[in-house]
Nucleic acid binder design. Structure first.
Length: 118
DNA sequence: ATGCTGACTATGT
DNA sequence: TACATAGCCAGCA
């Protein structure tokens, strides 16, 4: 399923592509914005990944909470600390542990997709 | 069309 | 460790 490319020609929006990748992140695992961007075929567009997450609605089925920054921390949002706390709760509920500084060990919970094959 | 804003990351000082 | 800068893209007034 690499090619959901519609013959219609409409190149999928960057955002849609990002959502597709995030949806693949397994439960109990986390991925960084930059990693998602790279897997989506958009290396260097980490920022766009963050914005794509922000554009999601509450009824989304995309596990946006599994996306954190490269520091292993939940990125602070302008919307308020409330959203960040929710993300942390969702992750802890999946078994992801945070350290005293509110950080996640990427070495331990980082998603490591196997290219080709699995 | 132009300018601003926003869930990032790497690099330099 | 902290702050500044540059690169990247989409949505909206």
């Amino acid at each position: 399923m690499t090619a959901h490319a519609t013959k219609a020609g409409a190149p999928q929006g960057t955002q849609e592509r990002i959502h597709a990748v995030v949806r693949k992140i397994p439960r109990g695992r986390v991925a960084t914005y930059g990693q998602v961007a790279r897997l989506a075929g958009l290396p260097g567009h980490a920022r766009q990944v963050g914005y794509a997450m922000a554009a999601l609605g509450d009824a989304t089925r995309v596990p946006w909470h599994r996306v954190i920054n490269v520091q292993g921390r939940v990125s602070p949002r302008r919307a308020g600390p409330g959203a960040g706390l929710r993300q942390r709760q969702l992750l802890e509920r999946e078994g992801v542990r945070f350290d005293g500084g509110g950080r996640v060990s990427l070495e331990r919970y980082g998603w490591q997709p196997r290219a080709r094959g699995r």
